[in-house]
Simulated scan of single mutants.
Amino acid sequence: MRNPRGSTKVALVEDHLLFAESLEIALGMEGYQVRRIPLPARPSSLGAVLASVLRVQPRIVLLDLDLGAHGNGVRLIEPLAKAGIAVVVVTGSLERTRWGECLRYGARTVLTKTSPLNDILATVRRLNDGFPVIDRAVREELIAEWHQNRVENHEARRRLDDLTPREREVLRQLMQGHQVRDIARINVVSEATVRTQVKSILAKLEVSSQLAAVGLAHEAGWRPSDV
């Protein structure tokens, strides 16, 4: 359903000041009621940001994903969508699995911050006029990629959970960039002992190199603090 632009509220949730100001000016010139949601100077919960958005009662929200100390903006998508708000993610991330996650939780589309400003404005116009803003096949493909990635990460976490405490410590040190000889020196053991531990790690993770083991851990979101 087409709405007069002057009655359409558009909220911006963006921690990059210059980018937010550019969007605010451009949307204002198009005739929309634009509200830039201020992010607290100190880190706060995303619940506070969500409450600020809902108070504005926007029809459309342009949402960044990486909100610095305030957390991952993807967590705002579902509650905003359930409130009947059209969420457009505008992000610097090029990870298709993150795009798929956004769409899975209710975002209407995902645009990159390198997109021409006119593309962002055109998306807002189409939403305001009641038109779709992403091809259904593209949407389903991105969601499928996210789901497959989630399954693979779950399996990777299962393998990581099979590591012994000592193997987890060795993997943590590999992730920090240490070589086998460094790990042996730090842990006061022989290089042969560390090589045996590394071999066991590779076998359990079903990878063929230390680099692949580190990559798998990063991809699964495993952090040294998990040790």
Rank of each mutant, 00 (worst) to 15 (best):
R2T: 11
R2D: 11
R2S: 10
R2E: 12
G6E: 14
S7L: 14
S7Y: 09
S7H: 06
K9N: 02
K9P: 00
H16K: 08
A20Y: 09
E21F: 14
E24C: 11
L27R: 01
G28M: 07
Y32G: 09
V34W: 01
R35A: 10
R36N: 06
R36L: 02
I37R: 02
P43F: 15
S45T: 13
S45D: 12
A48N: 11
A51W: 00
L54F: 05
V56M: 02
Q57L: 02
L63N: 03
D64P: 09
H70G: 01
L80Y: 00
A81K: 03
K82C: 03
I85T: 08
A86S: 15
A86V: 00
V88R: 01
S93E: 11
R98M: 11
R104S: 09
R104C: 03
Y105K: 12
G106K: 05
A107P: 04
T109P: 04
V110S: 04
T114K: 08
S115M: 09
P116F: 13
L117P: 04
A122Q: 14
V133W: 04
A137L: 13
A137H: 11
R139A: 14
A144Q: 01
A144D: 03
H147R: 12
Q148W: 11
E152G: 00
N153A: 13
R158M: 12
L160V: 07
D161M: 07
T164D: 11
T164V: 03
T164E: 10
R166S: 08
E169H: 10
L171G: 06
H178S: 12
V180T: 13
V180K: 09
D182R: 06
S190K: 05
E191D: 14
T196V: 13
I201L: 11
I201K: 05
L202W: 08
A203E: 03
L205S: 07
L211A: 15
A213D: 00
A217E: 07
R223L: 15
D226H: 15
D226P: 08
